[in-house]
Design a protein around this nucleic acid. Sequence first.
DNA 1: AGAATTCGTGATAGCGCTAGCAATTTGGTC
DNA 2: GACCAAATTGCTAGCGCTATCACGAATTCT
Lengths: 352, 352
Amino acid sequence: MTIADVAARAEVSPITVSRALREPARVSEPLRRRIDAAVRALNYVPDQHARALASARTNVVGVLVPSLTNTVFADVLRGIHDRAGKTDLQVQFANTRYSPLEEERLIRLFLSQSPAALIVVGIDQTQAGAKLLRAAELPVVQIMELGPEPFDMMVGFSQFGAGRAMTEHLLGAGYRRIAFLAARLDPRSNRRMAGYRAVMAEAGLADDSLMVQTKAPSSVQVGCELLREIMARRPDIDAVFCNNDDIALGALFECQRLGIAVPEHLGVAGFNDFEMSAAAEPPITSVATERYAMGVTAMDMIAKSIIGEPPEHKVVDLGFHLCPRASTRPSRAEAAARPRKPARPKVAKETR
Amino acid sequence: MTIADVAARAEVSPITVSRALREPARVSEPLRRRIDAAVRALNYVPDQHARALASARTNVVGVLVPSLTNTVFADVLRGIHDRAGKTDLQVQFANTRYSPLEEERLIRLFLSQSPAALIVVGIDQTQAGAKLLRAAELPVVQIMELGPEPFDMMVGFSQFGAGRAMTEHLLGAGYRRIAFLAARLDPRSNRRMAGYRAVMAEAGLADDSLMVQTKAPSSVQVGCELLREIMARRPDIDAVFCNNDDIALGALFECQRLGIAVPEHLGVAGFNDFEMSAAAEPPITSVATERYAMGVTAMDMIAKSIIGEPPEHKVVDLGFHLCPRASTRPSRAEAAARPRKPARPKVAKETR
DNA sequence: AGAATTCGTGATAGCGCTAGCAATTTGGTC
DNA sequence: GACCAAATTGCTAGCGCTATCACGAATTCT
């Protein structure tokens, strides 16, 4: 079942079939109809390998992410994958395991296979990796955060700004001794922490002993441990801002174990607005990010670039939004706007 | 940078280079050394497309899973991916969205690209899909569960048996009116439910009003809703066996909200032993399954098959094990073995 | 009217690699 | 020393597709 079979059936030359499939506009109406009919009758599927070999191009989009299991990236991948299904692009994932060197190796590997485009996470590639991506003659999208001098395109939000926003929210709710709990600090968590630090410093409340971290990857268990640690070191804290919602959930569980009332004695805030956070008791204050949309948008930008219509904006800020919930006291603004007795908080729609 | 460049540098013919790379044993020691040196000096990477075109074979393993975000599959994918990194096999994922028809479409699509092997989930393919896979001349691994007449190979565990085991454990702990909470029932959840039903029937305790389910996919939020529903319908229940740990977590949160003491008034058990379950307060009784190992084993079997050494056992049972925790009363056997006052349960190591 | 351009189609020549066979060398066997 | 089998290397001919150029016919321009 090759292009020649289709050509024979449609009584045209193979090259015309090839054109009808790739650039229908360049083939006359009647031929195109005959060819389409033949393709359908024979259930013809072009051979990707032959196509790639002959044209020195592929329809494979390489995606380099630090982790395949972290919910954050799983959501982005789902967006990428869903959108890819609507084009003829294929997706090839690879796992950098949070290692810039591994990422560089994978960049080399992928580039050697001349993919249609690449998606990488963040802005902290190695120098060599950055140079390769900048020089590459293909669409490149950096996702998850924003920064100056994109290699090509960018879709994300300000991690620093999000860290600031949550910290400001907590200050606005009257918290003063706010601890920061962090698992393995990848570059994005680091920038959130920088946002926290900046706000605390501006308020004259900065204090390094309020910050606890570990090299272990983020998990609920780690959240438990970090909470015990900070409570041992600084029993006077009045809130914890957790790097990630699983840390926050662990912190909440540990509070229950230790008999610490949330939010009365301790406010607990997370980041990323995982599905479980809104359902927890009490529901956990968090910052929602547009992970799925990020994947979709990245693929959209790539699809447009490939057909020669690069997107209007090369850098897209999808923003974030704060989700104040009962695990922290309401801020003054909210308290004014709400009825006295806070009703069961409405749970945002959580679709998969 | 082609095989010809390497051949020129090593002063041999291109075909010898090709052989040295694919079947080193068939090339003499000295030539092999010269060729290896040339490959490294030129940083040569064979063109996958040319290779696939010429040999009518690829090194791509297709993986069809129902979901990319569900932790269960994310863990399996990680195993598959990790192991693939140690061979020269590439992995291509696709998402069936729990639809057998979509799965069939993808089976056709993948087979038309003659992959090196296929991994599919479970035993509930459409008739046409099953026929295609049975006829396919390539390694096929069915994962996640076991069953009679594998297409080729199988790695999993008995979902029915696991459902039985948990239900028996709950009975052994003295629970009698055990509800079953289920989100969208995919075939595997169904078999777990069948295990529950069988044990309840044997004990003379079966009662359809004890079973609640919804079409929504599994989530913590859905766990909350299901718990409210069953408590409204059957306030006399003494335990809930949840389809999945996120349902169990939601049930636990809802118990906290409703003031139901766990495990005194209600035992809560889950399934899959997600990381958060051991860290919850109280820690949630669950059934651990070997998801990562399943992915690794599947890839191992495939790798062996491809080099012509099919694995000794075509069907591998990785089993499961019960993790009794404080969200259910201890069974009689455990109670006898343990000290009176249950210490904080040790948390199993949870590595990522 | 003749030249220049555009349009639609086709012929040719590879893309980089490997299957299959052919040629050569080596190491034994009778 | 002639002969055979095995081991080693190389040649030839594509795999299925597309880039490039070529060609005639239709269209536009001067």
